[in-house]
Nucleic acid binder design. Structure first.
Lengths: 336, 336
DNA sequence: TTGTATGCGTTATCAA
DNA sequence: TTGATAACGCATACAA
């Protein structure tokens, strides 16, 4: 690899001038040409390690996700990468495979790689881990939480209005006469799952319908868990007349089970799903879907992080609650 | 952040000794203790930029994939990350969103970041792009192709035996009496798609069954394209009695369409799918699946790359063709 | 506008 | 075993 020094020798200019050229300083036009030619001829590439060592900025943003295989997250990731690239940042992507130790370890790793900022979808951090996390935060690398929050932790964060999302959805079941409404919910330690459950219970309270805890099935946001939760629900002695799946994966698992049982939606069971991406897009007849503002979540996170990385610490912590939308389709039967 | 210099001052030793300690050299036990204590007290972390600048090794492997949302690739990625981490390497993950320009650009980016090695699942490279690619290869950063090859390019590569995979699968249809067999295939410029098609046609040749090109539907390896391809096939005047989907996504799309049409497998249509991951795992009754050796592909790629990064250039280029397995289930009807 | 000189934090050589 | 010192390639303050 050639260096600035080589370019300097080739052109007869000094390394300072070459550096200035590279970083957009003032250089005489005829020198610009000579430098450009030299760079081309010698196939010069900036040595990033040296630049980083000098500037203290890596121009890299770390993105840490629970899993790579979840389309909701990979979609977010794609949007972020696109946007940050325009600002000159690269992405280093990590996932912790839904493992709590891995989550902290990867966070340490990213901090250690000296990324300029971090975008995190947290999973298990909280409780005992909160101290370790706070310690990591002390390095003052800007960090924005995406989609999920960490209880008891002050961070910029962009969240969906999960509680009202399930409220509005479950309410549709209620106004259509349903009283036994099943919900397939995520692990309680994940904030979105907790909040979605709250919305579900709030509807019951507001409409004076008793909550039957047997109708609340806890999955782990995976396809398989949605499948078995649906199986559990439909095989109850007194099964629900309506079910809501609270993420894309569990929605798919639940529908797969219903189809296998040759049950029609909404003929045999009313259903509302989550996240209009991938498979939920092509299901036909279409089902009612809670649509999260993925694009907005991703963009906002990226913009907040950019702002923090530029040293703007105002209004910390920023908290956004983005509204969801209920995409209505004929998947809810009117009963009674 | 504290530096080696700080540790040196804290302990009264020289920076050379501290460096030796960090890199596992010989240091007196009582000094080791003092250094360890200092590192802990000052929360010292190695500055990677400085280390990289000095050692010329980043200990980072670039992984470049067509897409993040394809479970086949993200599964591979997970295995690789796991394995390489044990050897001290980190992963920087990139995807090019099925875009040919993005593919080359991201490749340049990775090379520029001076990763120590690259694992690439290529898509559109080849044809006109082959020159640009060859140029990039000249930097001599080790690179291993995963799952797909690039025509006319000498690279280490690990591939599945795609041709025999579809041959064996389609042959099952044939020996069960099927003569009109539909195939949902990927884009012809992707090597796996091309090879899978060859296997399909070879069965027809070997059993003297004429190939009806209307039964060969080209998708783009996406769920939606599998869905519409299946729709096209089943709505033909003279539809196939059996269909094979040649990746996980198109398999899911095809089955979704069949379910919607209330068609039973194998009652109304015989079917073979691809890749036993995610949804194909929970489909019930289970369908016959072409299982690719994902674990082996990923491991082998990682090991070859490790070997190349250690400077072992023997037997270049290494080419592996891994056998697939046909996981038989009752999704093929015996006719006539 | 251009050049000189310094330092970023680490590793590695060579003497002590 | 330890220490002094010279790179690594770049950016930048300051002088010219």
């Amino acid at each position: 690899m050639s260096t600035i020094k080589d370019i300097a020798q080739y052109t007869g200019l000094s390394i300072a001038t070459i550096s200035k050229y590279i970083n957009g300083g003032n250089v005489l036009e005829r020198n610009r040409e000579r430098i450009a030619e030299a760079i081309d001829a010698l196939d010069y590439k900036v040595n990033l390690a040296a630049r980083i060592l000098k500037t203290r900025r890596t121009m890299i943003v770390g993105v840490l996700l629970p899993s790579l295989t979840v389309p909701f997250f990979s979609t977010i990731c794609a949007i972020i990468e696109e946007l940050l690239k325009k600002e000159g940042y690269s992405i280093i992507l990590c996932s912790y495979y839904d493992d709590r130790e891995e989550e902290l370890e990867k966070l340490r790793f990213l901090l250690n790689q000296s990324v300029d900022g971090i975008l995190l979808v947290p999973q298990y951090i909280g409780g005992e881990d909160i101290n370790a996390f706070s310690e990591l935060r002390e390095r003052k690398t800007p960090l924005v939480l995406m989609d999920r929050s960490i209880p008891g932790c002050e961070c910029d964060r962009v969240l969906a209005d999960n509680s009202n999302a399930t409220y509005d959805a479950v309410e549709q079941f209620v106004v259509n006469g349903h009283k036994r409404i099943g919900i397939i919910i995520g692990p309680p330690e994940i904030s979105t799952a907790y909040e979605r459950r709250v919305g579900y219970e709030r509807v019951h309270h507001d409409y004076a319908i008793p909550v039957d805890h047997a109708l609340i099935r806890v999955g782990d946001y995976s396809i398989g868990s949605g499948y078995s939760a649906m199986s559990d629900l439909l095989n109850m002695e007194n099964p629900p007349t309506a079910v809501i799946g609270t993420n894309h994966e569990m929605t798919m698992g639940a529908i797969t089970y219903a189809y296998e049982r040759k049950m029609r939606i909404p003929g045999d069971i009313s259903f509302i799903g989550y996240d209009e991406i991938q498979l939920t897009k092509i299901i036909n007849p279409p089902i009612t879907i809670v649509m999260q503002p993925i694009q907005e979540i991703a963009e906002l996170c990226a913009r907040i992080l950019l702002r923090r990385m530029q040293g703007d610490d105002s209004s910390f912590p920023l908290v956004y609650r983005l509204k969801t939308n209920l995409l209505m389709h004929e998947s809810i039967k009117r009963i009674r």
